[in-house]
């Protein structure tokens, strides 16, 4: 029997977000909706990354004067997860910006946002 705790719930929420995002990217036809689905996906990934570093009753991983060096590695949360999340947010924002900008250009050209019309395969 798996014990249900905060970490497991967060992982499940992250998985749900990723699945919703993937489904939206695959099945929604509007390009803007696809972009929103992508942001959901990226939020799910971020949540998973933060959850990975979670320690029950943990402390911030900054070694302050007075913290015992032995207890610190046991209780400190994993620092790399939040670090990656920061970068991922920045990358996500810039990706979204590029996506939206190109979508605007394509909308001006075609007058529609339907991916099935705008993004269909090329025949050379």
């Amino acid at each position: 029997m798996i014990e249900i705790n905060l970490q497991l719930l967060c992982f499940m929420a992250a998985a749900l977000l990723v699945v919703i995002g993937l489904g939206g990217m695959l099945f929604l036809d509007n390009i803007i909706k696809k972009i929103i689905a992508f942001t959901l996906l990226s939020d799910g990934v971020n949540l998973a990354l933060v959850t990975l570093g979670y320690v029950e009753g943990g402390i911030v991983s900054i070694l302050e004067p007075g913290t015992s060096a032995g207890a610190f590695p046991e209780n400190a949360v994993l620092i790399f997860g939040p670090g990656i999340v920061l970068t991922n947010i920045v990358i996500g924002v810039s990706t979204t910006a590029v996506l939206v900008a190109v979508t605007m250009v394509l909308y001006r050209r075609y007058g529609t946002l339907k991916a099935s019309k705008v993004l269909k395969g090329e025949r050379k």
Partner: peptide
Amino acid sequence: QKAALKYTFFSALSGAGLAI
């Protein structure tokens, strides 16, 4: 423009995958 949009969609996907 179409190629760039499609490619960026996948950059988002694979970037998330590499982060995981």
